[in-house]
Amino acid sequence: MPYPWIDAYCLSKKGVVKDYKEEWEATRYQVGGKMFAMQGGDKEGNPIFTLKLPPDFGRFLRQQYPDIVPGYYMNKEHWNSLFLQGAVPDDLVREMIDKAYETVLRSLPKRVQRDIEEG
C-alpha cells in the first residue's frame, strides 16, 4: 500500500496517542484526547485516511486532487478523506498530517498545548 510511513509519521508528533475503534474498524490518531486523523476504509473496503483540516485548505485540495474527497462519514466542512490507493504526493500527505495535527493542537486549551509541547 502507498504511504507505509503514515503511522510512524503521525506517532512521531508530540503527545499523539493511537487507538483502534472496533465499531468503526479504524485506527485513530489523537492529541489532547481529540482526533486529528483516522485510517480505515470506505463501505467498499477501499483504504482511506481521513484528516481534520482548515476548511479553505481542504476545499483547495479537493479541487486539485480527485483522490481527496469530503470526509467519509465525517463533517464535510472540516474533514477530508484521502484514498490511499491514489496518487497524492508524499510531501502533500505529510503537509496534510502536519496541518491536521496543528489544527487540533491549537484548538486545545493553552495549558494543555503547553503540557504537550513541553512533554
Results as ranks from 00 to 15, higher is better:
Gly40Pro: 11
Asp42Met: 08
Asn46Glu: 14
Phe49Cys: 10
Val69Thr: 13
Arg62Met: 13
Lys52Tyr: 05
Ala37Tyr: 12
Pro55Gln: 07
Asp42Lys: 05
Arg62Ala: 09
Leu53Val: 06
Gln63Lys: 11
Pro55Glu: 10
Glu44Lys: 14
Ile48Leu: 14
Ile48His: 03
Gln64Trp: 02
Ile48Glu: 06
Glu44Ala: 15
Pro55Phe: 08
Glu44Thr: 13
Met38Lys: 01
Gly33Trp: 02
Asp67Gln: 00
Ile68Leu: 00
Gly58Ile: 04
Thr50Gly: 04
Lys43Trp: 01
Pro66Gly: 06
Pro55Ala: 08
Gln63Leu: 10
Met35His: 07
Gln63His: 02
Asp56Cys: 13
Ile68Lys: 02
Asn46Ala: 12
Val69Asp: 06
Gln63Asn: 13
Leu61Arg: 07
Ala37Arg: 12
Phe57Arg: 12
Lys43Val: 05
Val69Pro: 06
Gly32Leu: 02
Ala37Thr: 12
Leu61Asp: 04
Ile68Phe: 06
Pro55Ile: 08
Pro55Met: 07
Asp67Gly: 08
Lys43Phe: 08
Pro66His: 11
Leu53Ser: 04
Arg59Asp: 11
Tyr65Ser: 02
Asp42Gln: 03
Glu44Arg: 11
Gly45Met: 11
Pro66Cys: 04
Ile48Gly: 00
Lys52Thr: 01
Ala37Pro: 13
Gln39Ala: 15
Asp67His: 05
Gly32Lys: 06
Phe49Thr: 00
Gly32Gln: 00
Pro47Cys: 04
Asp42Cys: 09
Thr50Tyr: 04
Arg62Asp: 01
Gly45Ile: 10
Ile48Trp: 04
Ile68Gln: 01
Asp42Arg: 04
Leu61Ala: 09
Arg59Trp: 02
Met38Ile: 14
Ile68Tyr: 04
Pro47Gly: 03
Pro55Asn: 11
Tyr65Cys: 00
Lys52Glu: 06
Asn46Val: 14
Pro55Ser: 08
Gly33Asn: 08
Phe36Leu: 14
Leu53Pro: 01
Val31Ala: 01
Met35Ser: 05
Asp56Leu: 15
Lys43Glu: 13
Gln39Tyr: 15
Met35Glu: 06
Phe49Gln: 01
Gln64Phe: 04
Met38Arg: 09
Arg59Gln: 11
Gly45Lys: 08
Leu61Cys: 06
Phe36Met: 12
Gly41Gln: 14
Gly32His: 07
Pro66Ile: 09
Gly58Ala: 12
Gln39Arg: 15
Asp56Phe: 12
Arg62Val: 00
Glu44Met: 11
Met38Tyr: 08
Leu51Phe: 11
Gly41Ile: 01
Lys34Gly: 10
Gly32Ala: 03
Leu53Asn: 05
Phe57Thr: 13
Gln39Met: 15
Glu44Cys: 07
Gly33Ala: 00
Glu44Phe: 05
Arg62Glu: 07
Gly40Lys: 12
Asp67Trp: 06
Gln64Lys: 14
Phe60His: 04
Thr50Ile: 03
Gln64Pro: 07
Arg59Pro: 00
Gly45Val: 02
Gly33Lys: 10
Pro66Lys: 12
Gln63Tyr: 07
Gly33Asp: 10
Gly41Trp: 01
Met35Leu: 03
Asp56Lys: 15
Asn46His: 14
Leu53His: 01
Leu53Gln: 04
